[in-house]
Amino acid sequence: MAALSGVRVVDFSQVLAGPYCTMLLADLGADVIKVESPANGDISRGMDPKLDDTTSGAFLTVNRNKRSISADLKSEGGRALVLDLVSTADVLVENFRPGVAARLGLDFDELAERNSRLVYCSISGFGQTGPYSRRGGFDLIAQGMSGLMSVTGEPDGTPVKCGPPITDLGAGMFAVYGILAALAARERTGRGQRVDTSLLETGLGFSVWEATEYFYTGRTPRPTGSAHRLSAPYQAFRCADGHITVGADGPRHWPSFCAVIGLPELAEDPRYATNAERLRSLPNLVEAVEKRMVEHDREHWLALLEEAGIPAGPIYSVPEALEDQHARARDMVVEIEHPRLGTTRSLGPVVKFSDTPAEIYRPAPDLGEHTDELARELGRTPGDIETLRAEGALR
């Protein structure tokens, strides 16, 4: 039995942070029901890469293992059906801009009266309180305002965002953490509660090393390229045919690294004797190391470093990372059969379990694919369903 078997999640979210959260819950066995508008559904259905009129790669990748019900919340019948659905739920996830849920009659206080055990999770740009709460929020904005962009990129370069939408994905992960904690608390209290997280707080939460530097030195953290701001050498180094990454910052790894690259004198140099000294002299250190490492290709150095037990690795392109034998051995690339699209590929579950493994058992749903099925589960007769469809309440 899956870890979250028996947990029902009603998902009002769109695009990435919320759907990523609910996909993680669905992979763990939760019954996730995606509520979509009859017109176009989740915005990401229309994003690139488009696969047909109602499906995109962007939608497929974070909506597997879910069922879709398409109901017009502004119609009496559609709204009644969705409220009945919420009454059966353990968890609700929404990423409306603060204030929208209340206008739709879907705010926490109202729904908690109908279902006191409901764990209600809100994901937004800036959270439900504070002076910026009503602002729209996107990953780019959150990366900028959280300070992440100020420390990403090369020294003295222009601000650069992290390649992946890290605050979107991170907010989804923090939301899962909050939901699971609230479900555990409910086991003791019998009551649900509101879980509130945001893209901005995710960015701030990820700045643990940068905040540490500022709190304890008073310095404003700056971009360091691939280097670590608290440890050295811990970064990418140039070889004859490209770059590799090396983590040789520890007291055991540093002298071993110097020996492997044929520069044992660096380990005896007082400028590099301690981690703090190496950080202060990092430009000189990098210059000396790379002058030696460009004499051989990446494969040469990686073999020697592995033999010496020094953490190191190649810098892959995305295709290279996905095709790597270890990623495949860990089931990080999976194939999913879609009834219209045939075989599709997706990333596999990141966390492995010995007894209750995460599974991919259903492709991302078509818009409203499970509307009739769910309406029947909620007590609607075939006649009721046809009437609601004729009224435009259901798709």
Rank of each mutant, 00 (worst) to 15 (best):
residue 3 A to Y: 15
residue 3 A to D: 14
residue 15 V to I: 08
residue 18 G to N: 07
residue 22 T to L: 00
residue 26 A to D: 05
residue 28 L to R: 05
residue 30 A to I: 01
residue 31 D to A: 11
residue 35 V to Y: 04
residue 36 E to H: 03
residue 36 E to N: 00
residue 37 S to L: 13
residue 37 S to P: 15
residue 42 D to A: 00
residue 45 R to F: 04
residue 48 D to F: 12
residue 53 D to T: 09
residue 53 D to M: 10
residue 53 D to G: 11
residue 56 S to Y: 02
residue 57 G to C: 01
residue 58 A to K: 01
residue 58 A to L: 06
residue 61 T to G: 05
residue 65 N to L: 02
residue 66 K to I: 01
residue 67 R to D: 07
residue 69 I to S: 07
residue 75 S to D: 06
residue 84 D to G: 06
residue 85 L to G: 02
residue 86 V to K: 08
residue 89 A to R: 03
residue 94 E to A: 09
residue 99 G to D: 04
residue 102 A to K: 12
residue 107 D to E: 06
residue 114 R to Y: 05
residue 115 N to A: 04
residue 117 R to Y: 10
residue 119 V to T: 02
residue 124 S to P: 01
residue 129 T to S: 06
residue 135 R to L: 14
residue 138 F to C: 12
residue 138 F to E: 14
residue 141 I to M: 13
residue 141 I to E: 12
residue 141 I to V: 14
residue 148 L to A: 06
residue 152 T to F: 03
residue 154 E to T: 15
residue 155 P to K: 15
residue 155 P to A: 13
residue 157 G to V: 12
residue 160 V to C: 15
residue 161 K to F: 13
residue 163 G to L: 12
residue 163 G to W: 13
residue 165 P to Y: 10
residue 166 I to V: 13
residue 166 I to G: 01
residue 168 D to Q: 03
residue 169 L to V: 10
residue 170 G to Q: 02
residue 172 G to R: 00
residue 173 M to E: 01
residue 176 V to M: 05
residue 178 G to Q: 02
residue 180 L to Q: 03
residue 181 A to K: 05
residue 186 R to I: 11
residue 188 R to K: 14
residue 189 T to I: 09
residue 191 R to M: 14
residue 193 Q to L: 02
residue 200 L to N: 00
residue 202 T to E: 04
residue 205 G to F: 03
residue 210 E to P: 10
residue 212 T to A: 07
residue 216 Y to K: 06
residue 216 Y to C: 14
residue 216 Y to N: 14
residue 219 R to M: 15
residue 223 P to A: 12
residue 224 T to H: 15
residue 225 G to P: 12
residue 227 A to V: 11
residue 229 R to Q: 14
residue 234 Y to L: 14
residue 238 R to L: 09
residue 243 H to M: 10
residue 247 G to M: 11
residue 249 D to P: 12
residue 252 R to A: 15
residue 255 P to Q: 09
residue 257 F to L: 09
residue 257 F to R: 00
residue 258 C to Y: 09
residue 258 C to R: 03
residue 258 C to L: 10
residue 260 V to N: 00
residue 260 V to D: 00
residue 264 P to S: 09
residue 271 R to D: 03
residue 272 Y to I: 07
residue 273 A to V: 07
residue 273 A to E: 11
residue 275 N to M: 10
residue 275 N to G: 13
residue 276 A to P: 08
residue 284 N to E: 15
residue 285 L to P: 01
residue 289 V to F: 10
residue 290 E to M: 08
residue 293 M to C: 08
residue 298 R to Q: 14
residue 301 W to A: 07
residue 306 E to S: 11
residue 307 E to T: 09
residue 309 G to W: 04
residue 311 P to D: 05
residue 327 A to N: 09
residue 329 A to V: 04
residue 338 H to C: 02
residue 339 P to T: 02
residue 340 R to T: 12
residue 340 R to S: 06
residue 344 T to C: 06
residue 348 G to L: 04
residue 349 P to V: 01
residue 351 V to Y: 10
residue 353 F to D: 05
residue 356 T to V: 09
residue 358 A to S: 12
residue 362 R to Y: 07
residue 363 P to Y: 03
residue 372 D to M: 06
residue 372 D to H: 04
residue 373 E to L: 14
residue 376 R to S: 15
residue 378 L to V: 13
residue 381 T to M: 13
residue 382 P to W: 04
residue 385 I to F: 05
residue 388 L to H: 12
residue 388 L to K: 11
residue 390 A to W: 13
